[in-house]
Design a protein around this nucleic acid. Structure first.
Length: 920
RNA sequence: GCGAAAGUGGCGGAAUUGGUAUACGCACUGGACUUAGAAUCCAGCGGAGUAAUCCAUGGGGGUUCAAGUCCCCCCUUUCGCACCA
């Protein structure tokens, strides 16, 4: 008998999975028919980051999807209408690399992997609506992406430009800035080099301000991720300022010059100028040829966030790639050195030491008319601000370091207004304010202006404003906002990605495909060499085409899109069932998208904190502005889970510490694997994998199963009298809804009532955990405690405890534990729920309700401290007054030893029902 | 260098609001069952001490009747950014 009742996870899990998938338990309609059935369910969109189909699922997936599934299942128990979809992010390099290595077809390789992983995911028993599956490499998906591209192109949100881009020599493709980590490729770790290439960009910078300011509204996001995005966007406010360049024998009238600048600034916005600068240098940087002299070349535009330090500027520094570099260089020697700096900065962005060259030219500080030397300096970035800076060594670390190295004057113009609050303040400087003696360290903080003409005496803050206004008034500067964020470079010189729907016509130039002509299918008859350019670039049948406008000869764009584009909008696609896609005019039903979005809970790894999560936020704004939906942010709440590690480091083949989920599922069943991955650590922390720990989770599941079977065994299978059997049959038919009649529990065993009281605490605690803190490990451990107590009870109980109300209460407790644990271990809980006579699937049973049995604990344990140290514990009536507790404490043996005389008690502090601290 | 988070038994971790630190699990030790092992069950398990007690939440100060929790300084680790003017 006992043998037959062993926990057969294989059959149990198979049974329930078959039921779920054949009955489509988790498939839902796009928009619920609210109120039709008298229901008015709240919607809940639960989403985990979809996987790249690399071949097999790994522990990271198991953890990610166990977390998401726990939330989705919990929300269903609470009566929500839950959208919980899954798909595959199936464009990407591994497919292509596999093609090169094993001579396979990327599409076949990918589809085979998807098939395998789908089986694996189903084996985990995840509650997905598989009817909504997305495969991004399918043209039914990417055709919409091409449509977005065309529409973005028409609005100027997608554009092509020649630019310095990050190139990975191992992946043979370019990378976006976000995809470069410490100068290395985010995928393969190869050193990045810089190339000049024609590239497609998405104008994410147009949305910089919105992307930044909306972060404040994302209350459900971890602060850490918001901060990372904020830093990445890198907003800074400052002044762009023109310095007149003094070429040979240059002595023009200043007033006339300012007029000249004013016309120049009016003609071009700072942004446009920026663009010109960037493009110019690319065309000419290598040759160092001078450009023609005009208002543009007569002035140097710099950007500073510290206009208040203008009087302390002692030199200007420009990037080696600055378009004016060649105009400014006076000697052959300087030109040669500059060529060297250019060469270096084109190879890598890494910088070992600050290097610079004096150009031989000077510029005039518009505020004090001082002649400042212009340097070419390798630490000045061409692609930030204007590529030129005013250097104030007294108040900037980098300028200071450079000035020291090249013996340039250092002039202090800010002094500390409050010595104590600024740690940077250098005592020695105080007396030397006026004699220009050099500082030992730059003073970086805000303070009071000195040596600054009419601005002397102002605070930094006042001076920033006053000096900026003055510059604007004189037409020599403009207050500007700069962002660190660059436009998103989406061109990839690879095959396995979404083709960019653009052709280049000899007559009409760059032309987007007609929207009706989409999709532009990725050709399949390609050969992979793994060398040089993309296979598409060599495929004549693909390249040669006709112009959509004039019908003449044209060539196709051969770059494909960054695969982060697909993952930027998939969550929106899920909102509409794919069955309607055959006749759809739009990627998704606007009503459905507006109903479901934003995603209520998004779960995924922190590694996507800037890349994917920023792109997705950008893209939903694009979709909004293209009229596809009416939502501002894609993800309302975000949970970033930690990595799964083993022996202290990330699982990897090279370290040989990989654990295959399949092996574990075969050995213990998926409930065990899921339980351990939720129990071993709170979700946001790294999870240390421990094979022995898994066995502990397995034991716990067996314990639950046995407990339920034992209950059944006692009530139906033992040789109790027939009369008794009928009695318990009645019991089986008792409603699940709680019995409110407290008289019913009059005869109930007190231990059971105690357990019920504890259950009630756990129900409440679980609710708060499941609603946002997500520390599943504590919910599970509470249940373990309760299960242990039930075992304890079972061990000690006697025959009389098996009365009707006791049996009912025990059943209620068991059912409640099953419901609380169901989101984590759905198979075994479904099975046990059925064994206990649940007439519906547990997913429709709702959340456990609290039963008051009329039993209230009337005593409590009070900790007794003397001078803050725990000395004893006493049992007292609940809600006792301080005086009673004090007296009771003084009667305690241990306390008596310490306090013989009540008069020595100075005072006592009492925390009701918890603790008393006696001060002597 | 800048920014952020974290540091609790042999290990993963609990203590959500300042109120009995070490819940729960793993490992370990002893015992029962067994020819033996596995499994299971029972008992123990922060350190020192026979005990009374004392010491323990990275280290040092502080606030408080009371600090893992709050404040200041320092150390270590992890993550992010790295010349962004």
């Amino acid at each position: 008998m006992e043998q037959e009742k062993n926990y057969d996870f294989y059959s149990i899990e198979k049974k329930w999975q078959n039921k779920w998938y054949s009955e489509k338990t988790y498939s839902i309609e796009d928009i619920p028919l609210n109120n039709v059935n008298g229901e008015n369910k709240q919607k809940f969109y639960c989403l985990e980051m979809f996987p790249y189909p690399s071949g097999r699922i790994h522990m990271g997936h198991v953890r990610n999807y166990s977390i998401g599934d726990a939330i989705a299942r919990y929300k269903r128990l609470r009566g929500c209408y839950v959208l919980h979809p899954i798909g595959f992010d199936s464009f990407g390099l591994p497919a292509e690399n596999a093609a090169i290595k094993n001579n396979t077809n990327p599409k076949e390789w990918t589809l085979k992997n998807i098939e395998t992983m789908e089986v694996q995911l189903k084996k985990l028993g995840l509650s997905y609506d598989w009817d909504r599956k997305i495969i991004t490499s399918d043209s039914s998906y990417y055709k919409w992406e091409q449509l977005f591209f065309v529409q973005m192109y028409k609005k100027g949100l997608a554009y092509k430009k020649l630019s310095r881009v990050n190139w990975c020599e191992s992946c043979y493709t370019t990378l976006a800035n976000e995809q470069v980590e410490n100068g290395k490729c985010w995928r393969c770790g190869n050193e990045i080099t810089i190339k000049n290439m024609d590239q497609w960009f998405f104008k994410i910078t147009d949305y910089a301000e919105e992307l930044l300011s909306e972060l404040d509204n994302l209350n459900g996001w971890p602060e850490k991720v918001k901060l990372m995005q904020k830093n990445w966007i890198g907003k800074s406010e400052g002044l762009s300022l023109f310095f007149k360049i003094v070429y040979d024998s240059d002595d023009k009238n200043d007033k006339a010059e300012e007029k000249n600048v004013r016309t120049a600034t009016n003609k071009l916005s700072a942004k446009e100028k920026n663009k010109i600068n960037t493009e110019n240098h690319l065309a000419s940087a290598k040759t160092l040829e001078s450009t023609e002299m005009n208002a543009e070349t007569m002035h140097l535009e710099i950007f500073t966030t510290r206009p208040d330090t203008i009087f302390g500027a002692t030199y200007l520094a420009i990037s080696p790639l600055h378009p004016l570099a060649k105009n400014l260089l006076k000697t052959e020697n300087a030109k040669i050195k500059t060529e060297e700096l250019i060469r270096k900065s084109l190879i890598s962005k890494e910088l070992s030491e600050k290097e610079g060259i004096f150009t031989g030219s000077y510029a005039i500080n518009p505020f004090n008319k001082q002649k400042l030397p212009i340097y070419i300096a390798n630490f000045v970035l061409m692609d930030y601000g204007t590529g030129a800076i005013m250097s104030v060594p007294a108040h900037d670390e980098r300028d200071f370091e450079f000035a020291k190295k090249y013996n340039i004057k250092i002039v202090q113009v800010i002094k500390n207004s409050n010595k104590k609050t600024s740690p940077n303040f250098n005592e020695d400087n105080e007396d030397n304010e006026d004699d220009g003696q050099e500082l030992a360290n730059p003073f970086l903080g805000d303070g009071l202006l000195i040596n600054s003409s009419t601005f002397t005496g102002l605070t930094s803050e006042e001076a920033k404003k006053a000096i900026s206004l003055e510059a604007e008034k004189r037409g020599i500067g403009k207050r500007v906002i700069n962002y660190r964020l660059k436009d998103w470079g989406i061109s990839r010189q690879r095959y396995w990605g979404c083709p960019i729907p653009i052709v280049y016509c000899e007559k009409c130039g760059t032309v987007p495909l007609n929207e009706k002509a989409l999709p532009l299918e990725l050709p399949e008859n390609v050969t992979f060499t793994g060398k040089g350019e993309s296979p598409l670039a060599k495929l004549e049948s693909f390249i040669n085409t006709c112009c959509p406008i004039c019908g003449g000869k044209a060539k196709r764009e051969t770059d494909t899109m960054d695969t982060f584009v697909e993952s930027s909008w998939y969550y929106a696609k899920y909102t509409t069932k794919s069955r309607s896609s055959s006749f759809e005019q739009s990627p998704f039903d606007k009503k459905a998208a507006d109903y479901w979005l934003p995603v209520d809970q998004y779960v995924g790894g922190v590694e996507h904190a800037v890349m994917h999560l920023l792109y997705a936020r950008f893209f939903i704004k694009i979709l909004r502005d293209l009229g596809y939906l009416n939502v501002n942010e894609p993800f309302k709440n975000l949970l970033t889970q930690g990595m799964v590690v083993k022996d202290g480091s990330k699982m990897s083949k090279s370290k040989g510490n990989v654990v295959d989920p399949d092996d574990l599922i075969n050995k213990y069943g998926s409930d065990t694997v899921r339980l351990f991955s939720l129990f071993a650590a709170p979700p946001e922390k790294d999870l240390e994998w421990n094979d022995k720990g898994v066995e502990g989770s397995y034991r716990f599941i067996i314990k639950i199963y046995k407990m339920v079977v034992l209950y059944e065994h006692e009530h139906y299978l033992t040789n109790i009298e027939k009369k008794e059997q009928t009695k318990f049959k009645e019991l089986k038919e008792l409603p699940l809804s709680p019995i409110t009649d407290k008289n019913f529990f009059k005869e109930t065993n007190i231990e059971l009532k105690k357990i019920n009281n504890e259950l009630n605490v756990i129900i409440k605690k679980s609710e708060t955990e499941m609603e946002g803190r997500f520390h599943f490990n504590t919910v599970i451990s509470s249940c373990m405690e309760l299960v242990n107590k039930i075992y304890e009870y079972n061990k000690n109980k006697n025959q009389n405890d098996l009365n009707k109300s006791g049996a009912y209460l025990l059943k209620h407790i068991l059912n409640s534990i099953l419901m609380i644990l169901y989101p984590f271990i759905p198979h075994i809980c479904s099975e046990c729920f059925e064994i206990l006579g649940g007439d519906k699937n547990i997913e429709y049973a709702g959340w456990p309700e609290i039963i008051e049995t009329g039993y209230k604990i009337d005593t409590c344990n009070i900790a007794v401290q003397i001078n803050g140290k725990l000395r004893s514990q006493i049992t007292a009536n609940i809600d006792s007054e301080q005086e009673d507790i004090l007296n009771l404490s003084l009667e305690d043996e241990k306390i008596k030893k310490k306090i013989s005389d009540i008069s020595s008690v100075k005072k006592s502090i009492y925390v009701k029902n918890k603790l008393i601290n006696i001060i002597i």
